[in-house]
Design a protein around this nucleic acid. Structure first.
Lengths: 188, 188
DNA sequence: AAAATCTTTTGACCTTTATCAAAAAAAGAT
DNA sequence: ATCTTTTTTTGATAAAGGTCAAAAGATTTT
């Protein structure tokens, strides 16, 4: 729990009362591998912090799912667009490995927004952070070839490649598993 | 000015005092076509609302610029990542057509954040909005072919295709001008 | 209006990825 | 440990986009 606080306090300073109020709303939950955290068509009700584990975001497809994002240890999980807009999610969220989350419900977050000074600040930081990640990814699609995207993943997050099935990574990069297999062959 | 207020109030309700405080910081400025709003390497100092005009975000390249975003009439302009992080921007922002902006400086926004209740709320909404746009774009890269992306632009924002040079649109879609030209031929 | 510059199109050829199909390898279940 | 299922690799072919080069069309400048 203190871990979470120290994480936040890298960017935001919270008063003890605000922290008390905030942390009292968090609930800890464990999940097995391949547990569904949010089903497609459901409205996201949680904003969760990952204590441990790997989570995958994807649109289920007949043959090959469209995996568009991962979240890790120390990151956040939420179908944030659905969470914000209260519109059903058009994708599914699932654990890959065993995962431990600290969850905050939409209602509780609204309470935090309205009752604490720091609430909107937290919401603003979370959104700013998420925005910056997506902005980076946009440039990677425009600027880099699939091969470069893979190499970057490989060098920047090697643990990732070891724990996540390649077909998910292929999808995340924007190519077929066959093409990724050939890229790997080429660069090895 | 009232236009801006009514725009905000679609999502956020401001008290008259907060609005007074907020709007007093906005300054109106006009720009000619191809005016540089932010040079690469400079730290973004503005968050601006577009009253009129079209704006292009791009990384200058030897032969062909990498255009990754546009903003229009009623939208916002800012190298928001640089604005947030206070790190120099690695891209340039330029008008395409004659443009009128309402600008807010970083310092003034910080003042608004600290002095008004609504400040963080505004910041949160702006970030949430920007996040959702990038998230949509991420899926369009993974889900759609360049041809589909062009057709979507063409049907959803036809005015855009008339006013923006095709080579910028090609870059935005993620292909060369030659490839876009052939796509246009194919589907016409 | 003519010259100069920039944008868009076209052609030929090459590289990369998609697709269909199947084998090999790895992981999970009994 | 063996069988079953899933994941990864390999092969062959086709489609799409990239690249180099140049022509045609627009726009801007003088």
């Amino acid at each position: 729990m203190d871990l979470i606080r120290s994480l936040f306090e890298r960017t935001i300073t919270l008063s003890d009362e605000d922290w008390e109020m905030f942390s009292s709303k968090l609930s800890r939950q464990e999940f097995a591998p391949k547990a569904v955290l949010l089903e497609m068509g459901q409205t996201e009700n949680y904003l969760s912090y990952i204590e441990k584990g790997i989570v995958r975001f994807y649109i289920p497809k007949e043959d090959n799912d469209l995996t568009f994002s991962f979240s890790f240890h120390n990151g956040f999980v939420s179908a944030y667009d659905s969470f914000l807009s209260r519109i059903p999610s058009d994708y599914r969220i699932e654990t890959i490995t065993e995962t431990i989350l600290w969850r905050l419900t939409y209602q509780d977050l609204q309470t935090i927004y309205s009752e604490t000074e720091a609430g909107n600040k937290i919401g603003r930081f979370a959104s700013e952070d998420l925005f910056q990640k997506k902005a980076k990814r946009e440039l990677s699609f425009l600027n880099e070839s699939p091969e470069e995207r893979y190499l970057k993943l490989f060098t920047e997050q090697p643990h990732l490649i070891q724990q996540i099935p390649l077909k998910y990574i292929a999808s995340y990069i924007g190519i077929t598993p066959q093409a990724l297999s050939r890229i790997r062959k080429r660069i090895s």
